[in-house]
Each structure stands twice: as C-alpha cells, then as structure tokens.
Simulated assay, not measured.
Amino acid sequence: MAIKSQVRWPIADESTPELVLEKFAPEQTYKTRVYSALKQAITNMDIYSSNEPTWLDERQLSERLGISRTPVREAIAMLEQQGFVKSMPRRGIIVLRKTKREVIEMVQAWAALEGMAARLVTQRAKDADIAKLRPMFAEFDETHKPSDYLSDYSTANIRFHQTIIQLTGSQVLAEMTENLLLHVRGIRQITIGRDDRASQSILDHRAIIAALEARDTELAEKLARDHTLGLADYVDKHSEGIFD
C-alpha cells in the first residue's frame, strides 16, 4: 500500500513576520478626513479682508458634512493644536488671525522656503512642467491689466506660488509651507490691489519664470526670495486697516 507523504505547511505564526498593526478605526478615518476638509476650507477663507472675527459652529459643520459631531470635535481639536482655531466656551470656534508681527515673520519664513523651492525647481523640474508657469499670466497685458482684474490676478498669483512649491517634488517643503499658506495667502490677496502692486508683481513673476526656464539657479532663488520679502516689507510699512 502506497504511503502518502505528509506535507507540513508552515504555521502562520512561523511564516509571518512580526508586524505592529493597529486595527482599522472608522471613526479615526472620519476625523482625518474632516480635519483635511476643514483645513482646506479655512485656508480658502479671506480672514484678513475684514476685522470682524470668523466663527465656526460645530453643530452646523456636522450637519453640512453629514456626520456625527464626534469626528468634527476631534478635527477641531487638531486644528486648535496647530493654531488655526480656538474654541471659545459658550460662543463657538473662532478662526485665529495673526498679529502684524506674526504675519511678517510668516511671510519671511515663506520667502526663505520659496527661495529654496526656486533653486530646487531649476535642478529637478522638467522643462514641460516649468513651461506651465508662463501661461498662468498669459491673459494679462496692457489691455487686460492685473490692476483692472484683481480677483483673476490674485487667483493666478496664489496658484503661481503654490506651483513653485509643488514643482520641487519635496513633500517636506509642501508640508512646511502648508500652514503658512492660510495667512500669507490672505495678506497677498489684500495687498495686491494697493499702490499698483499688481503691476510690479507680474513683472517679478515673469522674471522668476525666465530664470527658472534658463536654469539660472542663483538668480531664480534670489528673485523668488526677494519678491516675497517685498510683501513682508510692504506689510511692515503699509498695513493700516488689516490688523486689529
């Protein structure tokens, strides 16, 4: 009688490496998604256009998102830790504005990061990707001046600066500038219409693009950094009505 060979299959505990795994938590996933949604919404707010405070209501947020208040409350707590909002007992959640000095320091930090971003773009980005920058301002000329179409130009302006960061391919730079964007963006939108700054802004942008296209690393870094430092200097000298 033939004897069947017995095959010993490995036991799971013997073949599976020791992995530190946490059980999937749906509530935690909701919290993360709510956090991202609220952060994006706050970033898109124009919180410096008025001295009136911007308030959020936890109940209304949960209703609009169609979820329970627990993940909203947890997301708010995360945003509060990062300095975006502050919970006020019996009043609600206020979106925090920075002081003049804080904003200037944030713009200066952005200038340093964007200068490095421009340097990295000359070294890493593809020609086809750099070529996407110039069309952002193609519609603006003497018959379609930035100063006459401030809303459109402001949108192109912010997109330009965001794209510079994205073209580096650096996740670290993206994360470092993400929290600065809320305040830098708001200040750019307000000041761009003052003292014909839009006209100078588009000249600066086109000079930066030319340096990036030419792969002139040192010039691109300097132009990008100095352009944003100009915003910090302007806020320092001409910020009447912006801050409380």
Rank of each mutant, 00 (worst) to 15 (best):
R90E: 01
I164M: 14
D129Q: 15
V95I: 04
K126G: 15
R134E: 03
M116A: 05
E175N: 13
R97F: 06
Q123T: 14
I76Q: 06
I94M: 10
L150K: 04
M136Q: 03
L150A: 13
T155V: 12
Q81C: 04
A174I: 10
K132Y: 08
G83L: 05
A128S: 15
G169N: 05
T54H: 01
H144Q: 04
K100G: 08
N157I: 04
L113F: 12
V72L: 03
Q123L: 15
A75F: 13
R91N: 08
W55R: 04
L65R: 03
L96M: 09
R91W: 04
G83T: 03
L56C: 09
A118I: 01
K100Q: 15
S147V: 13
F140K: 09
A77Y: 02
R124E: 05
K100P: 10
E63R: 04
L79V: 02
L167R: 02
T155F: 11
A125L: 07
Q171Y: 14
Q82K: 07
A75V: 06
P146I: 03
A138W: 01
L113K: 02
A128F: 09
L65F: 09
E58V: 08
V107K: 12
L113A: 13
I130H: 04
G83R: 09
K145H: 08
I94C: 07
L56A: 03
S147N: 14
D129Y: 00
D152C: 12
A174L: 15
R97I: 09
E175P: 09
L113N: 05
R64L: 14
E114K: 06
R124T: 03
F137L: 14
V121G: 11
V107H: 07
R159Y: 00
A128Q: 15
E63A: 10
A75N: 07
R134S: 07
A128L: 10
R97H: 00
D57R: 07
R64P: 00
M116N: 15
A117W: 00
K86V: 08
R124V: 10
R134T: 02
I158C: 07
E114G: 03
D141L: 07
G83D: 06
V95F: 09
L65E: 11
L56I: 02
R124M: 12
Q82C: 08
I76F: 09
Q166N: 14
A111T: 12
E102N: 11
D141R: 13
H161W: 11
A77K: 01
A138R: 11
P135M: 07
R59L: 12
D141N: 15
K126M: 12
Q123W: 00
Y149E: 04
L96E: 06
K132I: 13
T143M: 06
Q82W: 00
R124Q: 10
P71V: 04
L133K: 07
E175C: 04
I93Q: 03
I130A: 07
K126F: 06
A109N: 02
M78R: 03
V72D: 09
A77D: 00
M88T: 10
I158F: 00
W110C: 05
D127S: 14
L65H: 11
D129F: 06
A118P: 11
Y149N: 08
